[in-house]
Design a protein around this nucleic acid. Structure first.
Lengths: 226, 226, 226, 226
DNA sequence: CATGAATGAGGGTTCATTCAT
DNA sequence: CATGAATGAACCCTCATTCAT
């Protein structure tokens, strides 16, 4: 019977993932609100009502999908990180991994972060049972930021990073740049060249765009509030 | 009668703007889909049905609102730009202006760019009459990017920018960073300190985060695809 | 404008009552759960969605309907009561009024009291906004019982009632008998003869069914628990 | 093999009764429509699908449950009846038996009679296969009424009952009073004191509430229709 | 122009019932 | 026989949009 329950659980997990895959496709294309449960069900090969055997409601599908993907991303980031290597080697791997990871699913990331933002603002919308799941989602979201920030802090201690910008801001900026890439791809409707994008982002993050000769532009004189 | 038609037009314009202001408040708080026309109408002091005297439908309200705000932003950016000044002076002004400009409306920017993204993908969703408005919106959106890009290109020619990253990418990255700031603010629920954020962003964009001594980390050796 | 608002309010009230009338017809025939909003709307000459201009949801329609009818019944009972008359004269009028009042709507009374019972038990089912309305419903329900009980108490003081049964129980028994009549009518599918029923009920309530000669059966010897 | 089929039948009957017991609990608490098959199954220790091995559908569960309980009630009433005893002795036993019989299940009686009422009206709702079961239910329902009525008729012949009210009506009134007691208990959420209630009901039924001195109120003068 | 009211077109969710194992 | 899973058929409720005044 144990073997049977294991098999059953495996089958069930597979179906759960089928649903999440279908949901990702639909959510990515239409965003949360315009995605109909019926589309997700159809895409997954189920009837609409069947989804309720696996998830309590539409929100839950979205949240579990986001959790699954963020969880996997975090694992991948951890996997490619080697703290013995210089920071920028790891950073490059992170950028590449992030861009590759979502690959065709970059569009979903846009929805996911939007949804996350909405959840933060609009907490009254959530029923109690979602709070926990939402927290889990938030946890993964922030885990990724933290993971970055810690690497950055270590790099600062080792002198690999000279910028006066705080580690928190840096990790936030890197996230913004990656998300910006997803948005760009989504707008163009195709995934761009990961390697090219990685190189370009890395160059930008590493050296900024200032002149080789800092004297050229000198310390910026704040023009005050306009 | 001419004076009367001018007066009438002025009154009408005022009402249009009242509606857009109300719409911005609601869209910013809830995003496009969860915003109900009734809320916008109430916020503007009209009944729901009255909105249809000024705008054809919900999409149009959103689009005209976005156009108005992007148009204003572009004007402001143009106004603070002085091409005789060094590039980074102008960049700083742009960042500050962008962050200030939306001020309390930063949350709307998040919705606006999301909506824009959705429109790009989901063109079938649009009725014919929206296409032209949507184009106008796109135009403004890209005008801002172009305006940046041109400044960057000029700075490259003058040697103020040493980066090998393309002007297009740079302008995109800057946009991503600003949008990222809005998202951060929206998630925290408050507008951050514009000056602090401006300085931090400028430092990051200008110099990146690499060590003062480029030898430290050397040219990054790509680790290849994972 | 005052005249207009009065007219508007009148029209609105009329429509509200049309809806309640339609609802009564449907609820009476099918009970609460099997009544579809669409049927009620159709019966009232509205579309289903229109009902929501007048009532927040299905429960509210039911509750307001019950309140309206109980309120009217109470008014009618008060109107026919003359405390200068002997108790049994008033009682007869009450029975006749109750049976007449619902007339063709007796079937709804069955649903209404059932619903009331369910609400009492299943309070978790109610949203906050219904609690108030439900209380009002309860109030009317109990007002009628109280109104009866007070009349009975006065009659007891005047010696018109000799029974040792408490006033509360008597009023409850009378209610049960009237409800029983509605149930009987509903099962037969037709309204019975009000006068006949009134006379029969009154005779039963007044004199019971005991033999003219109380010696015949003597004090009942309790047979103890079975 | 005969022994085996007997055993099998016994086991099956036991399971049937387990289901009915569970159903009674759920139906009593929530009424027919708000009771979910899943709740009944859970309460009985089965899965929802298993119920279909014993009963064709939800209606059938309800009907068989009602039949079983009415059948048992009828048996009990027959058992406590001794036609050698005075009528009021038997009546008292009947009331006590009815109140005791349902004991904790009084709430179900409310549902059952409601359901019965609905079935009478809404015959189109029934599938052919239910008609026969429903008839059986009706038969028991009416058997109880008939059983009462016959006792009353005999009592009338023996002069134990002086009332001019017809035997049919009297039996109906008694049923109404008992049902009213169940409703009262259900609303209060607890079973009342059976002995007290029995005594009170009996006093009411036996002697009514009229004054000891009939001259007090005299023959009631009908006030005519209001 | 302003608006209360009406409504079509869904969308999410529930649940009795069926089916495959 | 038991059951997890699948599903069709509703049904309530929402909301952008239209219409009559």
């Amino acid at each position: 019977m144990n073997a049977k329950s294991i098999r059953d659980k495996t089958v069930r997990d597979t179906k759960c993932n089928l649903i999440l895959d279908a949901a990702r496709k639909v959510f990515a294309a239409k965003g949360f609100h315009e995605s109909r449960l019926e589309d997700i069900a159809g895409e997954a090969g189920f009837s609409k009502a069947s989804l309720y055997n696996y998830y309590a409601d539409k929100d839950e599908i979205f949240l579990y999908l986001a959790i699954r993907d963020f969880e996997n991303l975090l694992s991948s980031l951890v996997a490619v990180t080697n703290t013995d290597q210089p920071f920028f080697v790891n950073l490059e791997r992170h950028i590449r991994t992030s861009l590759n990871f979502f690959g065709e699913h970059f569009a979903f990331m846009v929805s996911a972060t939007n949804f996350h933002v909405t959840l933060r603002i609009n907490q009254e919308r959530m029923v109690e049972q979602h709070k926990i799941i939402s927290e889990k989602f938030s946890d993964y979201y922030h885990s990724i930021l933290s993971f970055h920030r810690e690497l950055i802090e270590k790099a600062q201690q080792k002198g690999e990073i000279s910028s006066r910008v705080s580690a928190g801001n840096i990790s936030r900026y890197i996230s913004s740049l990656i998300r910006g890439t997803f948005i760009e791809w989504k707008m163009r409707g195709v995934q761009g060249d990961t390697e090219e994008e990685t190189a370009s982002l890395l160059a930008f993050i590493r050296s900024g765009i200032g002149s080789a000769d800092p004297e050229d532009s000198g310390p910026v004189q704040s023009a005050g509030k306009q």
